[in-house]
């Protein structure tokens, strides 16, 4: 499956991915109109310290803990993509608590939102990827199997 991968070596910490994400999910045609004068709530976040910058977004885990934790049944996995049904979300933030990557964050109204690979908005493919100036964020299938396991031995994430 194609996923969004971030290569820390090339991430410049320019934060353009955050703005492209916010714009892509704004439903508007013009970026200035969509974002000017507004605080943005992107679904990808650049984590940084003095040496390292790294964009974080949902990994669409093989066995997503967020799905299991959702008390309202609002998070589900469809065709490999972990999605939020905002009508069902009650804003309890349990998913934020359990996500080991910190990939989830609520929107300006406290309702959960997360990266759904821009598959349902007008972009059709991840806006963070197409807008990244240094190919630090890529959208691809990878051959090597990558597995991450949490301290309890639970498989969190399997890349393909």
């Amino acid at each position: 499956m194609k996923r969004v991968y971030v290569n820390e070596e090339w991430c410049l910490g320019c934060h353009l991915c955050e703005y492209n994400c916010a714009f892509a999910n704004s439903g508007m045609d013009d970026m200035a109109e969509a974002l000017k004068g507004k605080k943005i709530f992107p679904r990808i976040h650049v984590e940084e310290n003095d040496r390292i910058t790294f964009a974080v977004s949902c990994r669409h885990c093989e066995d997503p803990i967020c799905v299991k934790s959702c008390i309202a049944g609002a998070i589900s996995k469809r065709d490999g993509v972990v999605c939020v049904d905002q009508d069902k979300c009650v804003g309890c933030l349990t998913c934020v608590l359990v996500c080991p990557y910190g990939a989830l964050a609520p929107n300006e109204n406290g309702i959960m939102q997360k990266c759904e690979l821009c598959l349902t908005n007008s972009f059709g493919e991840p806006a963070c990827v197409s807008g990244c100036p240094n190919n630090a964020i890529v959208y691809e299938s990878r051959d090597e199997v990558q597995t991450e396991v949490d301290p309890d031995g639970r498989t969190l994430y399997v890349g393909d």
């Binding site: 410049l12 320019c14 703005y19 970026m31 200035a32 974002l35």
Partner: peptide, 13 residues
């Protein structure tokens, strides 16, 4: 200024 969204990419780069 009508277009600037203060994303600060200019500053960072």
């Amino acid at each position: 200024m009508d277009r600037c969204i203060t994303c600060r990419v200019c500053e960072r780069q």
